[in-house]
Design a binder for these strands. Structure first.
Lengths: 225, 225
DNA sequence: CTACAGTTTAACAATTCGGTTAAACAGGAG
DNA sequence: CTCCTGTTTAACCGAATTGTTAAACTGTAG
């Protein structure tokens, strides 16, 4: 019987490794798509196998159990997400730029990773501890993506650029305004028979809208400067 | 065999009706709780029966299939939701009041109907057409809850109270800012080890924050009036 | 050629779950 | 008392799913 291939990628013969990671990647992609659409419970291993172009036996050969596969996919996405936010955000730049960058990056990321966003929401609704654990660990090691943004908010407040508001509230507002629309977009489309509308354009407009409303809602107003 | 009890409540002998609606209510409550936590696929009829204090046979006696029960619960919640929004919102009152009312009502409603909110999000993620159909029908008959708010936005813009922004974007921003926090609250709690924080107080603060940021973000600014 | 990891096929076990059924029971209505 | 409806109990079916296993096949590495 072959040894557990998931953890041990020490065997780096070029061929094996490539073949290995190739299939694993196909599985990841398929699993993500299925899990994100139907959630852990709604997903079927058979469907994942089909989508990956392999058979169920091989699926279990790579990931012994459904749960294991689910968690692997989740962890992978999460890591990817955390990494994407690590770069940007300098607390000393003008708040307008920090906010704009954060909004742009957030909207773009969610738009380009809808599967991930849906999966996260599924996990969140299911009330499992999976996300909690990952979040806690990630925050402890790299610091949270929002942390940089929070610093920027605090600094901007100290500089008198924006009003003294609870940063937690601000972050929640920004993230909500950016994310919820995209997550609910499929349903919104169903409702809104405005079929002709350009979705991409609406997203770009959304960035502007969120930035403008929130920025001007937070900046120190004339009389108080 | 008893006739289908779900649709036909014509038999209004006091006793029977009471007994009937009593059990049905227990089932509704139990089903809502289970469905909202685990989604349609994750929910188990046995668990619903247990929570309702009855047995599976009786559950199927009232609702023939799981799907039927699910849709009944969904429709019931939806109707209730639409009704709750029908009253308020006068387009001619100051926009500050319209916005404040909408935010307050929305936050309160979602807070007091978390199960419903979670269920809606589940349904949304699952990409079913259920919500789309209900929404479309409701919009056609009573007009949407947001419609009143949208009118208020349009009128306020005409009066020059607020800047000319796309009302769709504004509504999306307001609803997002109100709802997402509550839906993700369980997870946020897991992450944030600030166990001491008063959740109710945070919610009240959230209303203020959302209102303030959005209102001041939208009002016509000094130079342009 | 041999070994071996990856892969397929096909069948299997075990469980779970949704749904049905029949029989019996309970208690108010008439 | 008798009828009827709601309710329970218990057993059952059938379908779907997860997970396992054994055997055979494939192509590269050595």
């Amino acid at each position: 019987m072959a040894e557990e291939p998931v953890e041990s990628t020490q065997v780096d013969t070029k061929f094996v490794d490539t073949q290995h990671t190739d299939t694993q990647q196909k599985i990841f992609d398929a699993a993500l798509k299925v899990f994100s659409c139907k959630g852990h419970d709604g997903a079927r291993m058979q469907e994942i196998a089909d989508l990956a172009g392999i058979n169920r036996a091989l699926l279990h050969y790579y990931f012994r159990t459904k749960r294991q596969l689910y968690e692997a996919v989740f962890a992978h996405l999460f890591e990817q997400y955390m990494r994407s936010f690590r770069a940007v955000m300098d607390p000393e730049q003008p708040f307008a730029k920090s906010l704009r960058d954060f909004v742009d990056h957030y909207v773009d990321y969610v738009r380009d990773h809808m599967d991930m966003a849906r999966l996260v929401m599924h996990e969140n609704l299911s009330g499992g501890t999976l996300m909690g654990e990952h979040l806690a660990r990630a925050f402890a090691t790299h610091g949270s993506p929002q942390q940089r943004f929070e610093e920027a908010i605090v600094r901007a407040t100290e500089r008198g650029e924006i009003q003294p508001l609870d940063p937690k509230q601000t972050i929640m507002t920004v993230i909500s305004a950016c994310a919820l629309f995209l997550i609910t977009a499929p349903t919104v489309k169903l409702t809104n028979p405005a079929a002709g509308m350009d979705f991409d354009a609406f997203i770009e407009a959304r960035k502007d809208h969120v930035f403008n409303v929130i920025y001007h809602g937070m900046e120190t107003r004339g009389g108080e400067a």
